[in-house]
Write a protein that binds this DNA or RNA. Structure first.
Lengths: 238, 238
DNA sequence: GCAAAATCTGCGGGTTCCCGCAGGACAGAC
DNA sequence: GTCTGTCCTGCGGGAACCCGCAGATTTTGC
């Protein structure tokens, strides 16, 4: 069993390497890659089936790398090891994990024990391990009234990209008015209508404000927007 | 000479601790704090004059912490040790460094030698040390036509916050039209007018698009927006 | 001190956005 | 069947936005 480590921080990479060897004494080679692009290449070259992957890297972030890797070998087992549990990341990951694939998501702040346990569970037992905190985010977003459903989320992303209502309507095959309806729902869910202090009105540009709030709530983050941007360039959407 | 380390990542913290002891054998205590808030408290309690500070932390980011610390003791020597050289960070730092204070900015990707050298230069020699790459960003942003001057930048931030033209005008004591002029300059500098592929027009909402581009170019980042948000809440600006 | 350049400002228009209202399509409940 | 709820859609109006034009003010260079 070979393991590939994709992580841009040298210290973390060394730590991971050690942790992997300790948790999986039976494993063979442990390969390292320092960004997503190299990770993809290594995965292809070395026929690796077990990957520990950081999200948030410079060249290509973990989600994009994982997506291409999974496209080539859907049975690859990937353990995501991330600093944050932004809803944007969580959603991004669940969006790309193929049917029946096994993966894990543990935070860097977790104890070494948890990490090693997750390594064994995912790689040996082929069991999904999702950090409690991450699980919480998933629930909240999938769940009920407060979270966003997929349609709303996609429209939010389009808005964050800077598209006009009309453009979004075309891309999503909806009428202008429908898009605007969705937007209104978004505005409500994001609490965009609150006025700071005295009853100031017309203080906020709702559209831009929504993006700001989504960013600060980590519903969106820079890497999610970049991913969407790339998608947009590839398929200008009609 | 006591040194305070403010860094949320445990591995990095340990590494820093070691590096500090190695580079400054004459130093006394080495204190650690795991986020900005605790960092501020420790700095106050222990009367520390030498700080190694991470940017990008959860509770309070390095820039805000540094600002309050410098407000209390402008002669504190701070070495910023960061993963990224986003223009938003660089600008944020130069914005808060007090007159004549000594500080440094080295990237985590730099070699251990560079880090130790910077530690000695800043703490012992009281000499500013700015990473070459960071210096480059500074030049570009301060420099000429392509960069943003302070007024433009502040307006960009206000837009990213989701404020209306009118609101910005009030905050900045300008007329509505002047704000819009500034916006037009921003739009040009950010290349917002480019149309993807075929001559699509009306494809982008310029205002929101500007924010997206600024984010992807790292002129803005989430923490800069959060800082601005806090400022806004404190002084609703008239 | 003066001319050139850059900024600030008001006006006016075309466009986009925000949103209330109302009608139509389709689902499930009784 | 009817009733209720949800979603899509068009219409219309008020507000905000983008921007060209032109005059006033300030800054800059020499």
């Amino acid at each position: 069993m070979n393991v590939l480590i994709v992580e841009d921080d040298a210290l973390h990479r060394a730590f991971l390497n050690e942790a992997v060897r300790a948790a999986l004494p039976e494993c063979g080679q442990v390969i390292e890659a320092e960004n997503g692009v190299k990770g993809e290449v290594q995965a292809r070259m070395a026929q690796v089936e077990h990957i520990v992957m950081d999200l948030q890297m410079n060249e290509r972030n973990g989600i994009e790398a994982a997506r291409t890797i999974w496209r080539e070998r859907p049975d690859t087992k990937i353990l995501f090891w991330s600093n944050y549990s932004d809803e944007a990341y969580v959603r991004g990951v669940s969006r790309i994990v193929p049917e029946g694939a096994t993966y894990g998501y543990v935070l860097k702040s977790a104890s070494e024990e948890r990490l090693k346990l997750a390594l064994r569970s995912v790689f040996v037992e082929a069991q999904c391990v999702i950090d409690r905190e991450v699980r919480g985010i998933q629930q909240k977003s999938l769940g009920n009234s407060l979270g966003f459903n997929d349609v709303e989320y996609e429209i939010l992303v389009d808005v964050a990209l800077g598209l006009t209502d009309k453009a979004i309507a075309q891309r999503k095959h909806l009428s202008l008015r429908s898009v605007q309806n969705r937007l209104q729902q978004l505005y409500e869910k994001l609490d965009v209508y609150e006025t700071p202090g005295q009853g100031r009105e017309g203080w906020f540009n709702l559209r831009t404000r929504a993006v700001a709030v989504a960013l600060s709530r980590k519903v969106l983050n820079a890497s999610a927007i970049e991913r969407a941007e790339r998608d947009l360039r590839q398929s200008p959407g009609l």
